[in-house]
Design a protein around this nucleic acid. Structure first.
Length: 230
DNA sequence: AAAAGTACCAACCGCCGGTAG
DNA sequence: ACTACCGGCGGTTGGTACTTT
């Protein structure tokens, strides 16, 4: 396809600072998009796909660097339970984080059949996530997916459960009206994070979320009104 | 101190959906 | 309706840093 063009001549591997600079200048001038034109404009020997990826995952302004906060970790766990490997969807609720970052995080921390990795526990920045708490989450997740099998846990629950996120949001910010939620979903997501901070510190985690009814009475309205941070 | 094992992360690959011609 | 291109997504890989033995 377009990305492939003539597959010869494209540079691969790690980006150099000079390449980053050229790409950043291009985006500053022309904006995001038209990635396949980057090589022509800048002289970069990178295909459009590679340029887009570099921009989205590394150069784009506003990206957060460094480890994920405990609340971000919690949100990832929560949203992954809702949507499965919809990394880009999950990323929309974590401003400054990329789908790639979240995907890597998940693989690193949870690919090992649901148990936290050994090294994980020793890392200094690791969090309030005690093993027991995680076990709680996994139990809760299994309950939510109405299956004990791990494949199901990996394959996952489907999109309609957006309503559960909405409920999460509603719990986080009960005083918010539907209009408020609709107007400022980003703020809502941040409030989920704030809420998570509180809940995780209390050791309650979010197990209770999974006890909520799957079919919220206002699910249709909720799904219609809720939108992530794009 | 060195080798082996493990974790992390940037980047690539293949596929898919949307769209313009 | 068909085709080619573009943009985006999820899965995977490879290099490197860090930890353990």
């Amino acid at each position: 396809m377009g990305w492939r063009m003539a597959d010869q001549g494209w540079r691969k591997g790690p980006w150099t600072p000079a390449e980053d600079k050229l790409l950043a200048e291009y985006v500053a001038l022309h904006g995001e998009g038209r990635w396949s034109s980057v090589a022509g404009y800048t002289g970069l020997k990178r295909n459009g796909k590679s340029c887009r990826l570099r921009w989205v995952n590394y150069l784009r302004p506003g990206l957060k660097k460094g480890q994920l906060s405990p609340q971000e970790e919690g949100i990832i766990i929560e949203l992954h339970a809702l949507w499965g490997n919809k990394w880009s969807t999950i990323a929309r609720y974590l401003p400054g984080r990329t789908d790639n970052e979240i995907k890597n995080y998940w693989r690193t921390h949870f690919k090992n059949s649901g148990k936290p990795l050994q090294h994980e526990k020793k890392r200094k920045y690791e969090t309030h996530l005690s093993y027991n708490q995680e076990q709680q989450v996994y139990r809760a997740m299994n309950t939510a997916s109405s299956s004990e099998s791990e494949e199901n846990y990996g394959g996952m629950i489907t999109e309609p459960s957006q309503s559960k996120l909405q409920e999460t949001t509603a719990v986080a910010w009960p005083e918010a009206t539907m209009e408020q939620q609709q107007q400022n979903p980003c703020v809502m997501a941040q409030d989920v994070a704030r809420w998570w901070d509180t809940v995780s510190e209390d050791g309650l985690w979010s197990g209770f979320l999974w006890n909520q009814e799957l079919n919220h009475p206002n699910q249709a309205a909720i799904e219609q009104s809720f939108s992530p941070c794009y």
